[in-house]
């Protein structure tokens, strides 16, 4: 009978996984995403410089060529209610208060209202499933069959004159034997390995955020005037 212990060894699962180029399998897609993000950052910067800035070239005092980028400004209107004293007076002779909408305009850099941070890989997921299966089957079969056959016959005839005798006889022998042996054993193992990598959205580059913040801080509303003589606070 086959011995399970004496059969060929199953593959080592640990060895199978150790030999995998995990760095390439996981790092490859992430690297590609990072490169895509890098390309998009360059595209984003070029887009920002081309569309949100006016480029002015000139020469400095030393005669060297200089390029100055001036942000393109867009005009925004803001409206807010202001409590003012009206010319009418109440029963006690006090001037009544009324809420007047005051419209003010201010200039805002164009780049602050274009949602540039939408240009970026926001989700990268690498699912890596590996299944290693190892199996071994041993089957032994033995069969034997034996068959014998023997046969004999005789025939005799005696006679003289008016009498005679005839004798006939036969002998036969059959023998059959069969033997069968069958044994089977099987051993198997399998393993599954899953890796998930997730990368989130990158924020705007710090430099762009600083530029936007600087422009934001320099916003100074200019009062256009209102229906009354009030002014924006």
């Amino acid at each position: 009978m086959p011995d399970v212990n004496s059969g060929p060894a199953l593959v080592s699962m640990a060895q199978q996984f150790t030999g995998l180029p995990m760095r390439a399998l996981i790092g490859g897609p992430l690297n590609a995403a990072a490169q895509a993000n890098n390309m998009m950052a360059v595209t984003q910067t070029n887009f920002m410089l081309d569309t949100c800035f006016n480029k002015k070239t000139g020469k400095d005092a030393a005669g060297n060529d200089t390029t100055t980028l001036e942000p393109i400004m867009v005009t925004m209107h803001i409206t807010r209610g202001v409590i003012t004293e009206s010319e009418s007076k109440d029963d006690k002779g006090q001037p009544t208060a009324e809420i007047t909408n005051v419209t003010t305009q201010f200039d805002l850099p164009l780049l602050t209202i274009i949602p540039l941070n939408a240009l970026g890989v926001d989700n990268v997921q690498v699912d890596f499933d590996m299944e290693v299966k190892s199996s071994y089957t041993d089957e032994a079969s033995q069969s034997s069959s034996e068959s014998t056959h023997a046969e004999a016959s005789f025939d005799a005839k005696l006679g003289a004159g008016w009498w005679s005798v005839e004798v006939k006889g036969s002998v036969s022998h059959d023998s059959q034997s069969a033997q069968s042996t069958k044994s089977t054993y099987q051993k198997s193992n399998n393993a599954k390995y899953t890796v998930s990598v997730h990368a989130g959205q990158l924020q705007l580059p710090e430099g762009v955020t600083t530029i936007i913040q600087a422009f934001t801080n320099s916003i100074s509303p200019i009062t256009l005037g209102s229906s009354s003589s009030s002014q924006a606070s």
Binding site: F47, V74, T75, I114
Partner: peptide
């Protein structure tokens, strides 16, 4: 406070936004 884009700036912003 109510915030809106001035009508005079809309064509310029629309052009840039289309490119975006």
């Amino acid at each position: 406070l109510q915030l809106a884009l001035a009508p005079t700036s809309r064509p310029m912003v629309a052009g840039v936004y289309t490119q975006f």
